Amino acid sequence: MNNHFMNSKWLYAFLLAPVISAVLALLHFGFVFKSGTAGFGIVILLILYFDRLKQAKDVLLIMAAFLFSIVGDWFLSNMNGDAGMFIFGIVFFFFAHIGYFLFALMNGRMKRIFTFILLAGYLLFFAMKLYPNIDNTTLMWSALIYLVISCLSLGAAVGLRGSPVAKWAYVFGIFLILFSDTIIAYKEFVGYNELNYLILPTYYLAHIAIVFSIIKKRITE
């Protein structure tokens, strides 16, 4: 694919695929469409970097993160109250965050003060709201470790260098994942269900924002 095409704003049209998939998923058309924002994200990134995948190790991490997200989402979508399935879902989403975290570090640096404040706030949230309601030790540790990597991912995202648009789109995407996961935590551990309607829209929009960020990055390279 030539450089002129790679520098074209028409690349943003690729985002129509995950957007349509997200809409169909919200209309309950099944897991294929639920996984579509991440799945189409992988396809789009492969198209953008197909001729330089070996050099684009950071983008490969995002593809891996999307793949882990699909697997994690499958476990959560089929858990039906099974704590084991929930734990497996957390594990795969943990690996997804490793990908997001390493991508950000490869393109910037950790914002230490921001990360410290964010992590302190979420650890307080865990101690006061979640821990008293978790009676499964494995689940408790899984949730805690996942909370830590989620905060680290956002802290690293805030330290991205490069195009401001690409940076803040990526930050927005990681923030939305953290926001969606916070609502899930309230739902599963506290029994608070009033915000459940935001879980999937924010999760899908997170993938779209991250792909938008990578497209912007590719255009400006």
Rank of each mutant, 00 (worst) to 15 (best):
V32A: 15
G121S: 14
L154W: 05
A38Q: 02
L154M: 03
A157Q: 07
N107T: 01
H207Y: 08
F103M: 09
A157H: 07
S69D: 11
W74C: 09
G155H: 05
L200I: 04
L27H: 02
M140K: 14
S8W: 01
Y192F: 04
P164E: 06
H4T: 15
T137C: 00
N133D: 04
M140L: 14
I62D: 03
A166N: 13
E188K: 12
I174M: 01
S35N: 01
I208G: 10
K111L: 09
W168Y: 11
A64P: 13
A209R: 08
F86N: 11
Y197S: 13
G89F: 04
D135F: 05
F68E: 11
T37I: 03
V32M: 10
G173E: 09
I42A: 15
N196E: 10
W10M: 11
S153L: 04
I47Q: 00
E194W: 07
V71P: 08
K129A: 15
L26I: 04
G155S: 10
L60P: 03
L60S: 13
I42M: 15
L119V: 10
L76F: 06
N3F: 04
F103H: 12
L53T: 03
I177F: 08
A56E: 14
Y204G: 04
S150A: 15
V43T: 13
N3Y: 05
Y186V: 11
K167D: 11
L195Y: 07
Y186S: 10
L198T: 05
I183L: 03
S163D: 02
F75Y: 10
K217P: 09
T220C: 01
T37N: 01
A25G: 00
A206S: 09
Y146L: 02
G173L: 03
V190P: 09
A17L: 08
I214Q: 01
L124Q: 11
Y122W: 06
W74D: 07
I199A: 09
F92T: 01
Y170R: 01
G41I: 08
V23M: 08
L16T: 05
E194D: 06
V158M: 02
A209Q: 12
M63R: 11
L154D: 07
